[in-house]
């Protein structure tokens, strides 16, 4: 594919503050005119006028403080949020790397969760069945795969989630702070897999608070501060400036 995989163009995202309505029926009924007015005035700006592009095969890091707008950016790329103004364009199949347990059901076995997650993430049941064996192998869960996942340790869960995504053949992989879990050998495996994705031309967007991972993995880094882009550039420079800004 030619041209950028992801293009954000002067994109802003704000949320109306719903509190007047969600606070309950009483306030909703008695404070209705006020509620309507405040709906229009009160909005929370999550991102303001953001522009950037991510190119094929690139590993693009996003750093910034909590609440700066990193997860909103990932949500916009995944297509679960839509911009309030400006535009976002994404080419190819996007796969989020699920946080621990979010797409999993405790009572189902590992294998059943693989089917559920695989289909949710866009595979057909047939495709999941074809890949099941290699997913299980990759996860190194062995016989545990037929046990309910409530018996799994957090490291085992992470292995399962990572193995599923590794078999989705995504064009764009969204990674939201995942490398912190699992034991050392698993972390090593994750890093190896990411390197493998990188070699195969998968575009990755990587949100992390670990500056070591960011400088180690990313080709370019964007620093978001106060809901807008503060800096985009080579990892070392951006990370240095970011660390320098923390009092």
């Amino acid at each position: 594919m030619t041209g950028p995989m992801i293009v954000f163009e002067s994109l802003s995202k704000w949320y109306p503050l719903y509190h007047p309505v969600t606070a309950g029926l009483k306030r909703f009924l008695f404070g209705f005119p006020l509620a309507v007015r405040s709906l229009r005035l009160n909005r929370f700006e999550a991102l303001r006028n953001i522009s950037f592009s991510v190119y094929p095969g690139e590993t693009f890091g996003i750093i910034g403080r909590n609440g700066a707008g990193k997860s909103t950016t990932l949500g916009l790329i995944a297509g679960v949020l839509s911009p309030s103004s400006g535009s976002v364009e994404v080419k190819g199949r996007v796969s989020p790397l699920l946080e621990l347990g979010s797409g999993f059901h405790q009572e189902l076995t590992g294998a059943e969760n693989i089917e559920l997650n695989g289909v949710l993430l866009g595979l057909s049941r047939r495709q999941v069945a074809d890949r099941l064996k290699s997913i299980v192998e990759f996860s190194e869960l062995g016989d545990y795969i037929s046990q309910p996942i409530r018996t799994y340790s957090s490291g085992m869960l992470a292995r399962l989630g990572f193995s599923i995504v590794a078999h989705l053949d995504p064009h764009i992989l969204l990674i939201d702070e995942i490398l912190a879990v699992g034991d050392l050998s698993f972390q090593k495996k994750c890093t190896e897999t990411l390197e493998y994705f990188k070699k195969n031309g998968v575009t990755m967007v990587f949100v992390s608070h670990s500056m070591e991972d960011v400088t180690g993995l990313c080709d370019r880094v964007m620093w978001i501060e106060g809901h807008t882009v503060r800096m985009i550039g080579p990892p070392e420079q951006v990370v240095e400036a970011y660390i320098g800004s923390i009092p």
Partner: peptide, 9 residues
């Protein structure tokens, strides 16, 4: 909620 916030389906 966790699915809806992460995955487009």
């Amino acid at each position: 909620a966790s699915l809806i916030k992460k995955i487009k389906f």
